[in-house]
Design a protein around this nucleic acid. Structure first.
Lengths: 333, 333
DNA sequence: GAAAAAATGTAGAACGATATACGTAGAACG
DNA sequence: CGTTCTACGTATATCGTTCTACATTTTTTC
């Protein structure tokens, strides 16, 4: 089943069929209907590889850091919603939070003629992103770079989100508020969240309690760091974790140490993923509306593929969703 | 940077370069070294789209039902390990547990000239899988069909896994053991787990307590069904959930109802995902070694792509990992 | 040392789309 | 009524590989 078969069946030229396929200029309604009918009849499907040789593949590549953080599922829901009514399809690559793998995936997506790329929570720096963007339309989620001109960015206001957390904790009487962050020199969202945390602490007059622990994402290391933090000389009475998944691990360690949450320790996460709502977690978190982020990013990417050249930076306002893990009152009530 | 540039630089024919690229027969060591040097020097990367026109794209398509179940991350770890040293790359499509979407993704992967497909937890029936397998090498994970001859299957022994659960619960004194299953007429792993549950109950002399509740995966519906189960006239004293994620939701509902786990209610999951270990869950589960499943599946798929025609069916033996959610003794101890 | 076999390399026709350049008919214009 | 537009279609070069068929050289065999 090739474009030639369709052309023959419809009694028109190959070029005419191609035009119909691409919604290109210069096709009468009659011709279009005729060709469409033949395509349906023959159950014709264009081969992306062949299209890719000269034009588009109608495929966008999505790079995810890992599959364990449920937040990415929220984002993908939004992406899929945005793509639903288009002829674009998403193919996902998993970088396992490694920069080399990430670049490898991007390369292999370019080799595979993806029309554009959406990088989520990328750890690349601006230079590398610029290099990619020069080759293919690019949109990032979770990379702050308001000065970027070669690619679009989609974010929530991470600094503000972190400040919301600190403010909420301070209002609820917590003082020794620590932050559990991620070791990753280049992640701009971490930088913003740490900044927000510091600013929040200063504004609450808690500057002297600023305390940031950084850890990789490896489960064992997270546990080790959490345990160290909770058994150290200056045990915090609240921990703000950079993502829900880490918060759940911190809760786990705290429970094992016999600490009561939220009375001995408050824990707050980020992303407001579905796990926060479970009664055994009941985790206060920042909602950055992953679905919205995914939707906007996909929209921007398709616009870019279609030719938009001016850069857009989309920012969502985060909001805090308060649950029991940070509200001692709720437990006594 | 095309194959022609490399050929020119190395002073050989285009065909020679192509042979080196494909590890094809008829290349001397000297030629290979020469060509490889030019490829490195020019930083050449073959274009998958062009390769796809005649040969392989060295890309395998992986179809995942959803991104929220952390079990799939374990599988993907195995897949990536298996692919690491090959020139194959994985591209993932998310079907959102919908049969139409699943078929759509498969179609679009075939359009994109994937060399083979790995379908995980597919809800397709044998007929559809046969149709796919006739077009592309296919391996499934989580689809029992020992009679299948057109594709390979990789599974754990789900029936045995379910029996392990029932036996364990019975030994610990639980009697009214219910099962929380998934509405999905065609999923063979669910059929096997339900069968194992029934057999286990019969063998434990608990036939009259057999009680299977089925629900979709939608969070609200799961909660509703769990609540109905736990507040009904014949409240079970243990619930075996078909996957960890559901078990976590059941624990949540039970906690909200004021039930103590494991004294009022035991909960057991399946897949032994990372969340089971968290202290707030402490969930007994069946380990089916997702990483092993992924590794074997990827290996089988590449073998098939390379030409193996005889079918293989790989089965892992499940083992139970006992935690507090099903051992009342542990809590009093 | 001639014939056969194996090893190594090359030329060039595919693969299935896209997109440029162009032809032709009918409409609009003055 | 001739000219210029516009709308609609077509012919075909092109994209970057693969792979068959073949030519040449080297090795093996008797």
């Amino acid at each position: 089943m090739t474009i030639r078969d369709v052309a023959k069946d419809a009694g028109v030229s190959v070029a005419a069929v191609s035009k119909v396929l691409r919604d290109a200029y210069g096709v009468s309604d009659a011709l279009r209907a005729n060709v469409r009918a033949s395509m349906d009849k023959l159950d014709y499907r264009p081969l992306a590889a062949a299209r890719g040789m000269r034009g588009q593949t109608y495929t966008i590549g999505i790079v995810l850091p890992d599959l364990r953080n449920p937040f990415f599922a929220d984002i993908m829901d939004g992406v899929n919603t945005a793509l639903e009514r288009t002829q674009y399809r998403a193919m996902v690559g998993i970088s396992q939070s490694s920069v080399e793998t990430e670049m490898g995936i991007v390369e292999s997506m370019i080799d595979r003629q993806m029309d554009g790329m959406l990088m989520i929570g990328s750890t690349e720096d601006r230079k590398n992103l610029d290099i990619i963007a020069r080759r293919k339309p690019l949109v990032t989620i979770g990379h702050h770079d308001p000065e970027a001109t070669t690619f679009d960015t989609v974010n929530n206001h991470d600094q503000q989100g972190a400040m919301l957390v600190v403010k909420h904790l301070a209002v609820n009487g917590y003082r020794k508020i620590a932050m559990f962050s991620l070791v990753s020199g280049t992640s701009t969202i971490l930088i913003q969240r740490e900044l927000g945390y510091r600013r929040g602490m200063m504004e609450a007059g808690l500057g002297k309690h600023i305390n940031i622990t950084s850890s990789s994402q490896i489960l064992r290391e997270v546990q080790l760091n959490a345990r160290r933090l909770l058994t150290g000389p200056q045990r915090p009475d609240a921990i703000f974790c950079w993502t829900d998944l880490i918060a759940l691990e911190v809760i786990s360690v705290a429970r094992e140490l016999g600490l009561d949450i939220p009375n001995d320790l408050a824990v707050v996460g980020y992303d407001n993923t579905m796990f926060c709502d479970f009664a055994q977690n009941n985790l206060t978190s920042i909602d950055q509306s992953g679905e919205q982020l995914g939707l906007q990013a996909a929209r921007l990417l398709i616009e870019r593929i279609k030719g938009r050249a001016v850069t857009e930076h989309f920012v969502v306002t985060p909001r805090i969703v308060v649950r029991q893990s940070s509200t001692p009152a709720a437990i006594s009530a």
